[in-house]
Structures are given as C-alpha cells and as structure tokens.
Amino acid sequence: MLLQVLGTAADAGRWYIVNATPDIGDQIEDTPALHPGPGARQTPVAGVVLTDAELDHTLGVARLREADGVELVATAPVREALLAGPRLGAVLGPYTELLWRELGTAPLPLGPELEAAAVPIAAKRPRYAAGTGDDDPHWVVALVLREPSTGKTLVYGPALAAWPQALQEAAEAADCVIVDGTFWDEDEPVRTGISTRTASGMGHLPIDGSAGTAHRLTGLPARCLYTHLNNTNPLTDPDDDRHKQLADRGLEVAADGMVIEL
C-alpha cells in the first residue's frame, strides 16, 4: 500500500501532496478537497513534495500536466536525476511549467501555514540513476512538516534505508510520525521470493527485529503509524495478529483515506 500524505492547507483551499504515484489521478478523484475548479485548469493542488527520485513516487507528476504550472519541491540530487533520467522537464515542458524549489535541512515555507525540512537518510539511487552522482544522503530524505502558527509537527519517511540520529531527534520532537513499513522483518523479501536481497538491502528497514524500527518508535510521545506496506507484509491483513503486537507498543498501521489532524 502506498499512502499519500497530505499536508495542512498552505493557504485557503490549497494543498501539497507528498510524492506522486502513477495512480495519483485516482487518488485525487477519491479526495474531494483536491477536486479541480471552480475555474478552468484550476486546481487546489499547490505542489508536490518529493522524498526521493524512485519511479513509484514520481511518475504521477505527469498526470498533473494539465495544470498551468506544477510546483515540485525536491532535493538537488532528486531534481537532477528526474531531469536527466526520465527527462521530466523536456517531456512535460510542452504541456505545463515545472516550478522547482530546493528542499534542504532548513525549513522551507510552502505557504503561510506550512513549512518543510528534509532529514537526509541515504544515498540510494533509483535504478535509472545508478552510477550517477556521489554518496549524497539527500537522495532519500524524510520530511519534517511543521505548522508555524501552532508548532505542530509531522515526520514522514516512506523509504528508510537507515535511521540517523537526526531522524530520531525529529521523531522525538514530533506530534505524529509516519514511516516506512514496507517489510515486517529483514528476511521477508527473500522468504517470499520477491528478491534475493534482504529488506534493508532493498533500502527499507524492517519493522520487527533488532534492526527494526518498532523499538525506535515505542514510547515516543508522538502518534506513530506505518505506511508504504509491500503486498508481502502480513500487516496488509487487518486480522493478522501482528497488528495487536504493534498496538501493544502504541503503534498503528495507516489506512487509505485516513485523515490525521494535529
């Protein structure tokens, strides 16, 4: 499951979407607040914030080409990869204007009611960018989304190959934490036959085990949820006993259509 996280309204009726999967059109249709109008080619989608350059998080940008312009907030390595690999600028240029804003570790205002900052995670490149660039941890980032007027903060990291100290500190200070729940345990990809690599070898720390993330989240004051579940993860079954294991630790699994108000 890929759960798109919507930020608080950057201004009246304007929203940022975190990552753009290929089915973003269907997701917009299922979310009344994101429906276009009232004017022609008018959309409440203010822009898209990207946590990485993987295709499953970026191909949906092309579905937004009918807007007058698309604001993309991304780190420098992600921007350069998308321009050089899928040639996003050249492909979409005849349809709409791509407005790039650089995402860094300093808070970036996305409007009067929202700011975003990156927590560098790993130098994991998408396959189409293999061999390019250096070992810059800004290839994959977690986000710290903050509402300045209230100080409420959400940490979002759908792809975590590592858990740096900066992420731990951000999670400890947050009101809500939503992170990578791709695999339940380290050997799941190999055991289920989908890969010869382990979970962490595929760029996703598992939930359970000594290398897992559950023990890092347990006891935090924030509401903590998992997202980005692979179809091999037993948590995709709402009746699986592992949901109770998480609940006993105060942890949850995010669901489609879930609305979280901080």
Rank of each mutant, 00 (worst) to 15 (best):
A122I: 00
V177I: 02
A130K: 11
W163D: 00
L160H: 00
D185H: 14
D248F: 09
A130Y: 08
W184K: 04
L143Q: 07
A211I: 04
E252R: 15
L251P: 10
R216N: 14
Y128C: 07
E172D: 10
R125P: 05
P137F: 06
A142S: 06
A174D: 08
E147Y: 00
A254T: 06
T227Q: 08
A214Q: 09
F183P: 08
T218L: 14
A255F: 01
P148Q: 09
A130W: 06
D187L: 13
W184H: 07
N231G: 07
A123S: 14
A161R: 10
P221W: 11
P158K: 03
A174V: 01
D135H: 12
L225S: 12
R249K: 12
T198A: 11
A170D: 05
D256M: 10
A166P: 02
K124W: 09
L145E: 03
L229Y: 09
R127W: 14
L217R: 04
R249D: 10
T227G: 12
A129H: 07
N230T: 11
E188M: 12
T192W: 03
A255D: 06
N230A: 14
A214W: 02
L235H: 02
N230L: 02
L225A: 15
L251V: 03
L246I: 12
D248T: 13
P238V: 05
V179Y: 06
A170N: 01
R125N: 05
L217G: 05
D256P: 13
P164F: 01
G201D: 06
P189A: 09
V144Y: 05
A174R: 04
A159W: 09
P120G: 04
R249S: 13
A254Q: 05
R191H: 08
T153K: 01
Y156D: 00
A130I: 07
